[in-house]
Amino acid sequence: MNAVKAVVNGNLVLEREIVSGQVLLYEGDTIRDIMGQRFFRPRMCEEVIDATGCFVTAGFINEHIHGCGGADAMDEADHALETMAALLPQTGVTAFLPTTMTYERSRIEAALTRIRTARCKKPQGARILGAHMEGPFINEQYKGAQEAAAIAKADISLIEDYGDIIKIITLAPETIDDETFFALCRDKDIVVSVGHSAATYEEMAGMADCGVYHVTHLFNAMPAFHHRQPGLIGAALTDDRAHCELICDNIHVHRTAQVLAYKAKGRDGLILITDSLRACLMGDGLFELGGREVLVRDGRARLADGTLAGSIVTMDRAVFNFLVNTGAPLPDVIAMATINPARDLGVAERLGSLEKGKQADITFLDDGDLHVRRTIVAGETVYMETP
């Protein structure tokens, strides 16, 4: 029988509110209850964790991350995914989708195979939920930092072979003629996300009618909004069905654009991501992304031609940035990093919020600048700030 543990004295960030004077109880890997502090007796528990000075939230879920700590999801070394999983809890992340790049098919398949294997292992840090396949079925005109030579036409066989591990696929719908491709993705519960695309407003509306309405890193790698050609951005901002990723490093998306996105989409339509590369948590220097050299200087990651090449932001900083920039209520912002991606990925019944019966994935944030103090995955502390 598992021993009960308790979190006391924290401000619990629930799905729609912040509550104090409550105790969070968990047993093994499962949240057992939330009860009033006056009813709590410490002798009930094996361990009592004091969360004074902290917001206590569900663990963050990062559905779009290429790498961190010198490791990348495309690395051929098996330990790369282990490195990412081990380091992400210090950023508040308890679950993630390692994200592939536009490469030749053999490299993508090898990466998906490694992710499949890693997902089956007991997590030693953040949990791998599956893979986000970004490319190679994209529009060269909006390739961003993706490699043009590796861009390919959509191939159903890739989805058939790896439908169990791919949870999101980013593609340019205007480049795909075979509608059975989208049907297969739906059958395998793969989220089709529009990104690196020149899709028009009308094409986006057609995709929505087919049940495809997810947008990869809104505003980036797509045509700018125009008042006579609202395009992909106009469609995403005005259709309530659209769920939009947002990189909140204050580099990829201006603060005012973040405010605009929040006003248009509200709490339920946005998903905070990092889109981070291996340089995340590493500081300035020369790095690699998709086989291309990336220079990180003053927090900006760019290719030699000046193209932005992912970010080095961490999820806790993305949450803090969006909170400060928009003035949104904290539960709204936390939802964009927890329950929204959980719903996106079909795992909201067990992840994404502090509720009885859900998994004990818990993040403790300093109530000042929201830096991470402690992270719990499946009931086990996997990161704790050093005093």
Rank of each mutant, 00 (worst) to 15 (best):
E63Y: 13
A73T: 05
S353P: 12
H79S: 14
A86C: 08
D366K: 13
T363H: 11
T238K: 09
R43Y: 11
G269Y: 02
T375F: 12
A279W: 02
G379E: 09
I168N: 09
I115D: 04
H243M: 14
F287M: 09
D298T: 09
L25H: 08
G67I: 01
A301Q: 07
E140D: 12
I247E: 07
A149G: 09
V93W: 03
E109G: 06
A85E: 01
C45P: 04
I376L: 11
T338E: 07
D155C: 11
D161Y: 10
I168Y: 00
P136G: 10
M282T: 06
L303W: 10
A342E: 04
Y201P: 01
L171I: 05
H254I: 02
R373L: 15
R16E: 15
I159F: 09
G266L: 02
F364E: 12
M282R: 08
E355P: 07
E174M: 10
Q229D: 14
D155Y: 06
I165L: 10
L323W: 12
V8H: 04
G231E: 03
A261R: 03
D298Q: 05
A242D: 07
K265A: 10
S106A: 14
R107D: 15
K153D: 14
H254W: 03
A126P: 02
G69W: 03
K167S: 14
I273W: 03
P136T: 13
A224T: 13
H214F: 08
A154P: 07
V48S: 06
E46P: 05
T113Q: 15
I156R: 14
F181N: 07
F364I: 06
I233H: 01
L25C: 05
A205H: 14
E380M: 13
A126M: 00
I159H: 03
A328N: 09
Q90W: 05
A235H: 14
V212C: 12
G130T: 01
E147T: 15
